[in-house]
C-alpha cells in the first residue's frame, strides 16, 4: 500500500500546539521546533494531530 502521508500532505500539516512544520520519523510525526518537539502518532495511515495524544520528546 502506498504511504498515505505524502510529501504534499506533510507540507500542509502543522503542530497543533505551536504551528511549526512536522517531520516524519518512522511511524510518528514530530514537531520540528526545538522548544516543542511533540511527537504525534500515525494510526492506520492517519496522522493523529491532537495534543492529548502527543508524546513528549524522548530525552536526548
Amino acid at each position: 500500500m502506498d504511504d498515505p502521508i505524502t510529501d504534499d500532505l506533510l507540507a500542509i500539516l502543522a503542530c497543533p500546539k505551536c504551528k511549526a512544520p512536522l517531520a516524519r520519523q518512522a511511524d510518528l510525526l514530530v514537531c520540528t521546533r526545538l522548544e516543542c518537539r511533540l511527537r504525534y502518532p500515525i494510526r492506520d495511515g492517519i496522522p493523529i494531530l491532537l495534543m492529548d495524544e502527543a508524546e513528549l520528546p524522548s530525552p536526548a
Binding site: 500532505l9 500539516l13 497543533p16 492517519i46 494531530l49 491532537l50
Partner: peptide, 18 residues
C-alpha cells in the same frame, strides 16, 4: 489521490495557512 485525512481539533487546527 486529491484527498488527505487527518485527526485534529477545530480549536487547534494542525495546518499551515495554505
Amino acid at each position: 489521490d486529491t484527498l488527505g485525512w487527518v485527526v485534529g481539533d477545530a480549536g487547534d487546527l494542525p495546518v499551515h495557512s495554505v
